[in-house]
Simulated assay, not measured.
Amino acid sequence: MPIINNVAYSWSMITLSSTALGIDEGSTTLEGVSGIKWNKKRKIESNYGMGGKPISRGFGNITYTASVTMDYATQQMLRSTYGSLMDIGEFDLIVSFANPMASDDWTTTTVTLKGCIFSEDGMESKQDDTDITHEFDLNPFDISIGNDFI
């Protein structure tokens, strides 16, 4: 587990930013986001020869998946600007992890979800919900992982 000055990475250290959505770096405009997921996956298969044992490996395509869970107020804020979420077009979403209690030589880890685009717009709710949220696929074109030294 990554530890910075005896503090583990946690949800409170995550910042989302996207200039295409009108969100500045470090902005809290998307405060209603309660979940973010991303995954990179490469197809790897063993190649077989004599004796039925693997003799090498073959590498296939890399696929990228990501999603964001937003409350209804955040969804409506985006809809009021763009109409439907599906009308937003492609955007990059930068996920930053920073420890505000760290020393002067701390690093910010970033993951950039590139070329995201919403393929749906909807909501769901049921009796006794106290917070209406929905998870939306981001359909990223690429995912870049890097560190920025502050």
Rank of each mutant, 00 (worst) to 15 (best):
P140W: 06
G22W: 10
R79G: 11
D148W: 07
D121A: 10
F97G: 04
Q127C: 04
P100Y: 10
T110C: 04
F59D: 07
N47A: 15
K53C: 04
N47G: 11
D104C: 01
R57E: 08
M77R: 01
R57S: 05
S10I: 02
L21K: 12
S12Y: 09
Y72D: 05
D104L: 12
S56E: 11
L21D: 00
D148A: 13
D87I: 08
F149Y: 15
K37V: 11
T74M: 00
G146A: 09
A73S: 14
G51A: 12
D129L: 00
G89N: 14
T69A: 02
V95I: 13
S125Y: 15
G35V: 11
L21S: 03
T74A: 01
T108P: 00
G26D: 12
D142F: 11
Q76D: 09
T133H: 09
G83N: 13
V68Q: 08
T133Q: 07
A8H: 00
M1R: 07
S96H: 12
T69I: 09
A73N: 13
D104Q: 11
K126M: 01
L21Y: 08
F91S: 01
D87R: 07
S34F: 03
A8G: 03
D121N: 05
D24H: 05
E25K: 15
L30T: 06
A102S: 12
L113P: 00
S119F: 04
G52S: 09
D148I: 15
D92F: 04
Y82C: 05
D137K: 11
D121E: 03
M101K: 10
V111K: 02
A98E: 10
K126R: 10
G115Q: 04
A8L: 04
S46G: 14
G49K: 13
A98V: 11
M50D: 14
L85G: 07
H134Q: 11
I94K: 09
T29K: 15
T133D: 02
G146N: 11
D24Q: 13
E120A: 14
N99T: 02
S17A: 13
L16E: 02
E45K: 12
I36P: 06
C116W: 07
Y9A: 03
D128C: 01
S17Y: 12
N99V: 02
R42T: 12
M70Y: 04
S80E: 15
W106E: 08
W11D: 01
K41C: 02
S84H: 14
T130F: 04
D129Q: 01
S34R: 03
V7G: 02
I88L: 13
F91E: 05
I23D: 00
W106R: 10
E31H: 12
R79L: 06
G146E: 11
I44C: 10
N139L: 04
L85R: 03
F97T: 03
G26C: 15
G49T: 09
E135C: 06
V68M: 13
T81C: 03
C116A: 06
S125P: 00
M13A: 05
I94A: 07
V111P: 00
F141T: 11
F136D: 05
K114I: 00
G35A: 10
N61I: 07
A66D: 03
L138S: 02
T130Y: 02
A98G: 09
G49W: 13
P140T: 09
A73Q: 12
R79D: 03
M1A: 07
M1D: 02
G32F: 02
T19I: 12
D142V: 01
S34H: 06
Y82F: 15
S18W: 04
G51K: 10
F141R: 14
K37E: 08
A20E: 14
L113G: 01
